[in-house]
Design a protein around this nucleic acid. Structure first.
Lengths: 212, 212
DNA sequence: CGGCGAGCTTTACCTATGGTACAGTAAGCT
DNA sequence: AGCTTACTGTACCATAGGTAAAGCTCGCCG
């Protein structure tokens, strides 16, 4: 805080062991799942000993929480940025949303093998291995997506009243649902194009639903 | 085969140990995941020893495969039955499909906590722990859903040509995607109503897409 | 310059779990 | 009677997560 106003500037030999542990862990968890990622493997990868790991993380559960927290922050920033860019290009709420969805689909398509979002779903499916904090973090994150999309839809509805009544929560959840499901499907079929195509299909659905 | 034409009638002391192992395993896997379900726990539950388990299953991977195979068969039977019932009620392909979707949503809503389908997704997310056979089984199952729904949509399109071109594979996959994602969401938010509502929303989408 | 504390290492050890090997045994089938 | 099925029992191994505690070392602060 005093000597350097930027970063704590590496107390010691390694530049940022904790961060390197998290980076490697994220990469391995996305590639092969949490349980298949061993602590020994991680410490060997960053060049420390097992005790060094437990200096940074209380246990493996603690690592999972740190991974999830970091993931949630990044995801929110990414979405904020994406919607901001879409809104800058567009005044109309519906058009802005449709642009954002297209941007999102393009981003998903451009991504390599490992998709983000897997972290959340991966941990969700193994959440009995973890404590409640992990589960609650996950739920909180999903709910924040619901709120974000519901607000968007509320604005769209004001401008484009739909012909039939729409379940706004369900429509908002559909986005998260398609992402989580799309990741599962993409993984099962080894076809990364599935998720972006589902997002584009959702986009069609939204467009149809609020068409003038 | 000779003495009893009904069931093999319990070779020995237990009625059907293998089935009881599978039943308990399924229940525990749905409740807390595959890795959190220990072999010791299963054998204690059905009243045999660890060696007894390895008599029935080569290893834990073999148990996973048996679980998945049984699940896939049941799922197919369930879907066959559901579509058959919907078709009996209806001649029109679109209407039949919509009825089937409603039946499906009702079934999902009526289900208790543990949904089927979790098995597939659960194993999918931990598939690096298993051998290729598990992964291929899963992919095969997902593809069979795609084929089933695509055929349905092809028949619907013949009767109700859509205004805009539709990506049939993506539309077919959307069902599986919403189911897998809906299970993740329902699990994360502890809200079993999410999946049936997503199915009903999908139904709306299909109805809109093929409306006359 | 000396000590404190952050960030580790070293050593040692415990437990749970999956898994192997193999001998033995009771009940049924032919 | 003898083969097979469906186990039990005993013994043992490896891997992984985790704990405990002492020691070392570099940078910073006074």
């Amino acid at each position: 805080m005093s000597s350097s106003q930027f970063e704590p500037l590496s107390r010691r030999r390694s530049v940022d062991t904790r961060k390197r542990l998290l980076d490697l862990a994220e990469q391995q968890v996305l590639a092969k799942g949490f349980v298949a990622t061993s602590i020994e493997e991680l410490v060997a990868g960053v060049g420390i000993t097992k005790s060094g790991f437990f200096y940074h993380f209380k246990d493996k559960n603690d690592l999972a929480r740190a991974l999830l927290e970091r993931h949630i922050v990044r995801e929110r920033e990414l979405l904020d940025d994406l919607f901001r860019r879409a809104d800058e290009l567009n005044d109309d709420p519906l058009h802005g949303f449709l642009v954002a969805l297209r941007l999102f689909a393009e981003m998903m398509a451009a991504l390599p093998e490992a998709h983000p979002g897997c972290i959340a779903a991966t941990l969700c499916y193994q959440d009995q291995l973890f404590d409640r904090t992990i589960h609650e973090l996950n739920a909180q994150s999903v709910l924040s997506w619901r709120v974000r999309f519901r607000e968007r839809f509320a604005r769209i509805i004001a401008a484009y009243p739909p012909a039939e009544p729409v379940d706004l929560n369900a429509l908002a959840d559909m986005m998260s649902t398609l992402i989580e499901g799309g990741l599962v499907m993409g993984r099962a079929l080894r076809d990364p194009s599935i998720l972006p195509r589902q997002v584009l299909l959702f986009r069609d659905f939204v467009r149809q639903t609020f068409r003038p």
